[in-house]
Amino acid sequence: MGESFVQLPEEGFVTRVIRRKLQLVASIAIISLAAAACGGSSDTSTDASASGSGVSGDVFISGSSTVEPISVRVAELFESIEPDVFVDVEGPGTGDGFQKFCAGETDISNASRQIKDAEAEDCAAAGIEYTEIKVGIDGIAVLTNANNSAVDCVTFENLFNLIGPNGEGTTTWAAADSSLPDAPLDIFGPGAESGTYDSFIEIVLEDLAEEAGVDATTRTDYNPSAEDNIIIQGIQSSDTSLGWVGFAFAGTESKLLEVDGGDGCVAANADTIASNEYPIARDLFIYVNNANAEENAALRAYVDFYVTEGLDTAVAEVGYVPLTDAAKDEVRAGWNG
């Protein structure tokens, strides 16, 4: 059966055809991309956008997974007004987001901290100019198990001793900090990719680490997780656990410790966070690519909506602390100017 009428095709011929096939795939991709790009900007159906101004276009957002729900919620609210503006959101993390943003791949970068100097330099080198917009506040809650009655309030020094690099290898609270009770210490927190991790270091650990002459980082022998529920569940798994998560995800199952940032113990709640009394709170930002905003009316309209309805409604809806009215006015003035 295997006998053939002709000789095997030459190797060169086969390779050529395969190559042609690959080119076909490539050209399908390119054509469809081009079509997508054209389709996006030329497709202006007017009947569906009765309530809006009828702008259309694509907006792509990447960055912090903490801010992601706000931007998604804003997009959901915006959708009913401008149905022809298409907003896609992904959330790999603040650092990843800035890398893409400064490569010009995204329109908006969600961030749970301000842009770092190194990142700003990358942006400048690539010629990307941007506008920073503060959208809300996220308190960082310090948690322990609800059964833990031995500790109510911790100072920044306590936290540095417990979670900072000097705590490496300690297995009880007392071993890390002699002023604390002698109980097993199990620490749960976000991993290094998370904005909550960066913020915690920046707010709580950085100055003390400098004084102590050690790196501003955490000990490495804690249980890191990118998922807040895993951190919460970890805290519940041990009676004398310690952990930190975004205030929105603290829930009610664990005990929120009061924190002393130098001005006495303050409990974490929406009021103390918005008023900046609670010491471990961080601002949430979006960074908008200026050049893209100028070209893309859809992006402009989305950010316009973000700084009005978004700040008023969406931030609270997804569990963050909204800005005060004065701060909102400042943000709006900053964007419109």
């Binding site: 399908i28 991709a29 054509i31 469809s32 991309l33 079509a35 997508a36 389709g39 694509d58 992601e68 931007s71 998604v72 997009a75 959901e76 959708e79 503006v85 298409f86 907003v87 896609d88 959101v89 992904e90 959330g91």
Partner: peptide, 17 residues
């Protein structure tokens, strides 16, 4: 995508990209 995907009304060939 796990975050948000806009509800576009694009043609089949557009969707590929």
């Amino acid at each position: 995508i796990t975050g948000r995907l806009a509800a576009r009304d694009s043609s089949l060939i557009d969707q590929l990209g």
